[in-house]
Write a protein that binds this DNA or RNA. Structure first.
Lengths: 69, 69
DNA sequence: ATTAAATGTAAAATTAACTTTACGTAAAGG
DNA sequence: CCTTTACGTAAAGTTAATTTTACATTTAAT
């Protein structure tokens, strides 16, 4: 499973620390999520999607994206 | 956090066992989720939404629903 | 060169998700 | 009555998420 956390964080101009604070998790959690070391709980996934003002499915990519059509 | 798993499972006419099998989790996991004993991982939440052919946000209710106004 | 901010790694500890096993109850059908 | 099916509880065990602490690296500014 992939995610767009790092990209979105950059777009929103947030540091890992700032994002961690907003989500009320540790910075390690942000790093691990960005690095794909593990998958978040649904609550954390939801909170992340709220910070980035989108849906969970917009942050987390479950399926292989169709590359060509 | 609330969820509509039990309702959706009934609508789709699935037993806890059948749903568990489809999701590749134990029946205990289904019971615990339906009873709200804990929250699923995002992967499990995603799989559940797929079984019920909807979005994660349609199965899991994160915010308090607006009751009036 | 030094400081500070941001990012990263590593590892041990804690918490939460999930499994496994065993047992209890209620409804439906033989 | 007896069996089967579906749902439920309880508790112990395993795995994965998350925290905490400590330290290393890079980049930008002084």
């Amino acid at each position: 499973m992939q995610n767009r956390i790092k990209d979105l964080r950059t777009i929103y101009d947030l540091t890992q620390d700032e994002l961690a604070e907003r989500l009320e998790v540790s910075r390690q959690t942000i790093i691990s999520l960005e690095k794909g070391r593990y998958n978040p709980s649904i609550m954390l996934a939801y909170k992340i999607s709220k910070v980035f003002m989108c849906r969970i499915e917009d942050v987390f990519i479950f399926e292989e994206e169709e590359k060509n059509g």
